[in-house]
Amino acid sequence: MMRRLLSTTLAITTGCLLATGAVAQSDEDQIDYRQAVFTLVGANFGPMGDMAQGEIDYDAEQFARNAARVADLSRMAKEGFEGGPHDGDTDAKPAIWDEWDRFSEGMTHFETAAQELAEATEGGDRELADVQDRFMRVAESCQSCHDNYRDN
């Protein structure tokens, strides 16, 4: 069931991504797009965090698969903020657009950290201890953005 939900959400997100390049999106479309991307980031990063904290058994193949997905999604995340601020149901703070260069730098850090984690886990045969530091870099980049640019 979860796999089907993730597949469906990924298909919707991909459709939104393709549409973003074709036509200007409304504020709600931009908000929906970025929320879909971050929902998928959370759905993939959450189990990795549970493994890193020992709450569930470490599965190197699942960890690698999820890391690759987060890396892919990290390249899409900033698009949902472009052209803002966007009016609608969002927890995004206006500081994103007031501090666009700093925000963009943080998003680049997230993308780089996610890519490095995906590369470190590629093949699905690494021990958690071997990738823990890279995992923490991604987690820290997420937390920094949430602390500075997200209400709640």
Rank of each mutant, 00 (worst) to 15 (best):
Q30T: 12
I31H: 04
I31Q: 03
D32I: 15
Y33Q: 03
Y33P: 01
R34K: 15
R34M: 09
R34Q: 14
R34Y: 11
Q35V: 13
Q35H: 09
A36E: 07
A36Q: 09
V37F: 07
V37G: 04
V37W: 00
F38M: 15
F38G: 14
T39K: 15
V41T: 13
G42C: 03
G42P: 00
A43Q: 11
A43G: 10
F45L: 11
G46V: 12
G46D: 02
G46L: 09
G46N: 14
P47Q: 05
M48F: 00
M48I: 03
M48S: 00
M48H: 05
D50F: 08
D50H: 04
D50S: 10
D50K: 14
D50W: 08
A52E: 06
A52N: 05
Q53R: 14
Q53W: 07
Q53D: 11
Q53Y: 11
G54V: 02
G54K: 04
G54D: 00
G54E: 00
E55F: 06
E55S: 05
I56D: 06
I56C: 07
Y58N: 11
Y58D: 06
D59W: 00
D59P: 03
D59Y: 02
D59L: 05
A60H: 00
E61T: 13
Q62C: 08
F63D: 00
R65P: 01
R65V: 13
N66F: 13
N66M: 10
